[in-house]
Structures are given as structure tokens and as C-alpha cells.
Amino acid sequence: MGSVKKKKRQEQSVGDALISVAIYVFYAAFAFICVYPFYYIFINTISNNDLSQKGMIIFLPHGIHFENYVKAVKIPGLLNAAFISVSRTLIGTILTTISTAFLGYMFTREHLWHRKFWYRFVIVTMYFNAGIIPWFLTMRNLHLTNNFWGYILPTIVSPFYIILAKTFVESIPKELQQAAEIDGAGTMTLFYRVILPVIKPILATVAIFAAVAQWNAFQDTLLLMTDNKLYSLQFILYQYINQASSLKQLVNSSSGSAVAQSIATVQTATSIRMTVTIIVVAPILLIYPIFQRYFVRGIMIGAVKG
């Protein structure tokens, strides 16, 4: 009797151990396919370009050099696109964060004129929109095509972030606001002095979400911009993937005599494609580990609110 029980328990623990091993293997494998592509592209950009073009660089870099990054500035349009991407990310993030903080606070003001209606007016746009073509035609009528503000203005009021901020403001003890109001603080003073310092954590979350969204945006360039001075990094990366071979001549011919260049560092279609990819993805990969907790908090508050 006792031995049967023992045997059963043993079987169970063997089965358990097998499941554990399977779980570890699965997650390690999935983690690998999430990381390896970035690592692979990176080691190729710092390796001997000839080997890289032949697909020989797989696990370790060979013939390390940084020419690809030095020469990247010669890729036509890249510097300008970087400027556009950085500008839209900075300006867009600042304006979106300010408007989110303010609206998140204002929609908790009980006496705001028709508060519920205006709140719904904003939130409904999350679920219902006219579609991208009517949106594009509207943007064109407003002269926001081939206009830098076409990147910024439509993103300033963002319902999802407002829900996050409003939920956060609601969690602040009411006494804090009441005390300040008794001391004679008006709507704006209350916002500056009382609310803003307290909601900083959620604003950090919103700012990071907004910055990532601005940096990653591609569709708006595709729809609105035909002037190549307004192309973003994402957009020219997409172009480069499809036309890297014609670019390589431009980059190489402008860098003096081709004779002086060794085959290891001369630009190839592969090297240009991969270098630009790393340049575009680097900001995300660098900020991600630092700000991960903010992202997670954002989605958790969002989840509570459904």
C-alpha cells in the first residue's frame, strides 16, 4: 500500500520535472528568437562587409570595424530623416503629455460643464473613426499634408492616455484637493501645485508610450508626406530595404577613390540595410530595459479600467 503511494508520487514528480524542463526549453527558445535577430544584425554591421554579404557572420563578429556607422552619414536623406524623427518625437511627446495631464485632471472636475458628455466625446474616438482615406482627405483640406504639424496635431489628444491619467487622478485622496480649494486655489493653481507633482509617475508612463509611438510612426508619413525633406527614419528605412543596391553606389562613389578602400569596409547593400536598421532600432532597445516598469504599469492600469 505504502509502496504504491510512493511509486505514484515518484511518477508524479518525474512527470512534473519533465514538464518543468519543457517549460524552460520553450521559454528559452522563444526568448532566443526575440533577441537573436537584433544581435545578428548588429554583429553583421561591425563585421567584415564582404563576409557579411556572403552570409558568413552568424554567431560572432569577424574583422571588427565601425566604417559602416561612420559612412552612414553619407547615405542620402538619413541625417535629415533623423532630424525629423527626433523633432517629432520631442515635440509630439511634450505636447501629448501636457494635454494628457491637463485633460486627465479636468475630466475629474465634478463641476465641469457637461463633463460626462465631453469625456465620452473624446473616449468614443478610440472605438469609432471615419477611416484612413476620409482622414487623409481631411488632412489635405487642412493643408496638413507635406507639413510637419501633420505629425503632431492629430496625436495631441489621445483617449487611451487620458483614461490612464484620469484613473490615476481619481486615486488621489479627495482631501488633498479640498484642502487646497479651501485655501483659495483656483482650477489652474490646483493643477500646477497639487495635481501635477502627484501624477508624475503616470505622466512618465504616458511620455514613454507617446515617444515610442512617435518614433515608430510610419503610416502618417506614407499617407501625408511626399516631400522627402519630411520623411521620417522609419520611412526611409523602408525605402532603403527595397533599394539598398542602388544606394551603395552613391555612398561608395562619394567616399573618394574606390581603390583605397579595402573590400572589408566597402559598403554593400547588406551593410547599408543592416546599419540603418540598427540606427533606427537602437533608441528603442536602449530605453526599453530602463523604462520597462513604466510600460508594465501603464498596461496594468489600462487593464483595470478595461
Binding site: W215, F235, Y238, T277, I284
Partner: peptide, 14 residues
């Protein structure tokens, strides 16, 4: 957190 363009670039390079 990376854009679809970057996903495509990863796909293309690999």
C-alpha cells in the same frame, strides 16, 4: 515596441 517597418527589416535581413 519596434515598428512594423523594423519587423520587416528583421524579416528581410534574416
Amino acid at each position: 515596441f519596434i515598428s512594423w517597418v523594423l519587423v520587416y527589416s528583421v524579416a528581410f535581413n534574416i
